[in-house]
Amino acid sequence: MISVHLQGQRFQVRAAAIVLHEGHLLVHRAPGDPYWALPGGRVEVGEAASATVVREMKEELGEDVACGALLHIAENFFDLSGQRNHEIGFYFLVSLPEGSQLLDKARIYRGIESHLELEFRWFPVNQLASINLRPTFLHASLAADPLAFSHAVQREYP
């Protein structure tokens, strides 16, 4: 995976899935996390970011997804557990297969990331501002109609 420690910071390249269905967005979080994020993971060396999304969805949820258009590129600077992070993120529109068991919006789904059990849930797009979604630029960008490509620079620290 592309994740290195440089000058006291962790630098990583991440690819994430924007899974929208009937006005809802699929998000996940690790146990104890106070925030939600888009499913995805770190890009492997030599791997296209779109392939990362497909691989991560298969690993975490057992779903074969179709990775569509790149919707956002983000330069994200944030602290996590006392560690400064500089992340380059690629955010792709992703569709689930027809008849996927993940399409029931009322359920909470469990997935696996390495040794962590992840919680996956659907939230209405028009209510995203009410949840702690990271990175926060996603609140406005996913509520836009129509959705449009963007480049975001998000800084949680100077």
Rank of each mutant, 00 (worst) to 15 (best):
A16D: 07
V19D: 14
L20D: 05
H21D: 15
G23S: 05
G23N: 09
L26R: 00
V27I: 12
V27N: 00
V27D: 00
H28L: 05
H28Q: 15
P31E: 03
Y35C: 10
L38C: 15
G40S: 07
R42G: 09
V43Y: 09
A48P: 03
S50P: 05
T52R: 02
V53K: 00
R55F: 11
E56K: 09
K58L: 11
E60L: 00
L61G: 01
G62C: 12
G62E: 09
V65W: 07
V65F: 07
C67D: 10
C67R: 11
G68L: 15
A69E: 15
E75A: 01
F78P: 00
G82L: 11
I88W: 06
F92H: 10
V94M: 02
L96P: 01
E98I: 13
E98K: 12
Q101A: 15
L103A: 04
L103Y: 03
D104Y: 08
R110G: 11
R110Y: 12
G111S: 03
E113F: 02
E113K: 10
H115N: 15
L118I: 07
E119V: 05
E119M: 11
E119S: 09
F123S: 08
F123N: 02
V125I: 15
V125G: 09
A129T: 03
A129L: 02
S130T: 15
I131Q: 04
L133T: 12
L133I: 10
L133R: 07
R134P: 04
R134Q: 14
P135S: 06
T136R: 15
T136V: 11
F137L: 12
F137T: 01
A148S: 08
F149A: 02
